[in-house]
Amino acid sequence: MRIILVQGDITERRADAIVNAANSSLLGGGGVDGAIHRRGGPEILAECRALRASAYPEGLPTGHAVATTAGRLQARWVIHTVGPVHSRSEDRSHLLASCYRASLGVAAELGAHTVAFPAISTGIYGWPLDDGARIALKTVRETPAPGVEEVSFVLFDATAYAEFDRALRGPGQAVDN
Rank of each mutant, 00 (worst) to 15 (best):
31 G>S: 07
132 G>T: 00
98 S>I: 04
49 R>T: 01
39 R>D: 11
23 N>R: 14
109 E>P: 08
117 F>K: 03
108 A>R: 09
77 W>M: 00
40 G>R: 13
4 I>T: 14
79 I>M: 08
1 M>L: 07
26 L>W: 07
139 T>S: 00
37 H>Y: 05
64 H>P: 02
8 G>N: 13
12 E>H: 14
60 L>H: 03
89 S>Y: 05
19 V>I: 14
13 R>W: 12
167 A>V: 01
125 Y>M: 01
41 G>E: 12
21 A>G: 05
7 Q>P: 08
47 E>R: 15
141 R>K: 12
9 D>F: 06
22 A>N: 01
105 G>R: 04
81 T>D: 01
54 S>N: 09
77 W>V: 06
25 S>A: 11
53 A>M: 03
176 D>N: 09
20 N>C: 05
38 R>D: 15
116 A>P: 02
48 C>N: 05
70 A>L: 12
121 S>N: 01
142 E>H: 06
168 L>A: 09
30 G>E: 04
121 S>T: 12
106 V>W: 03
63 G>P: 02
169 R>C: 06
167 A>D: 02
21 A>N: 03
28 G>I: 00
54 S>Q: 09
93 S>C: 07
22 A>C: 05
29 G>E: 03
88 R>V: 14
132 G>W: 01
90 E>T: 11
141 R>G: 05
129 L>H: 13
3 I>N: 00
117 F>Y: 05
46 A>D: 12
44 I>T: 09
92 R>M: 09
87 S>W: 01
162 A>V: 11
6 V>D: 10
30 G>V: 02
123 G>K: 03
39 R>N: 13
128 P>N: 09
150 E>I: 03
18 I>H: 08
163 E>F: 13
38 R>P: 09
11 T>F: 02
47 E>L: 12
71 G>Q: 12
168 L>W: 04
78 V>Q: 08
71 G>R: 12
80 H>M: 04
139 T>V: 05
173 Q>W: 08
78 V>S: 00
175 V>N: 00
126 G>N: 07
28 G>S: 06
16 D>T: 15
88 R>Y: 14
71 G>A: 07
146 P>T: 09
157 D>R: 10
16 D>K: 14
108 A>P: 01
50 A>D: 08
110 L>N: 11
47 E>F: 13
38 R>V: 11
157 D>F: 15
96 L>D: 06
160 A>E: 15
110 L>T: 10
66 V>D: 02
73 L>D: 00
159 T>G: 15
111 G>W: 08
92 R>E: 03
110 L>P: 11
122 T>H: 03
15 A>G: 11
77 W>Y: 15
18 I>K: 10
34 G>D: 05
30 G>P: 01
123 G>A: 10
16 D>A: 12
173 Q>N: 14
59 G>Y: 11
66 V>K: 02
21 A>P: 02
93 S>G: 05
76 R>L: 05
15 A>P: 02
78 V>F: 14
155 L>F: 13
12 E>V: 13
76 R>S: 09
79 I>N: 06
33 D>H: 13
146 P>S: 08
102 A>V: 04
13 R>M: 15
32 V>W: 00
9 D>Q: 13
125 Y>Q: 04
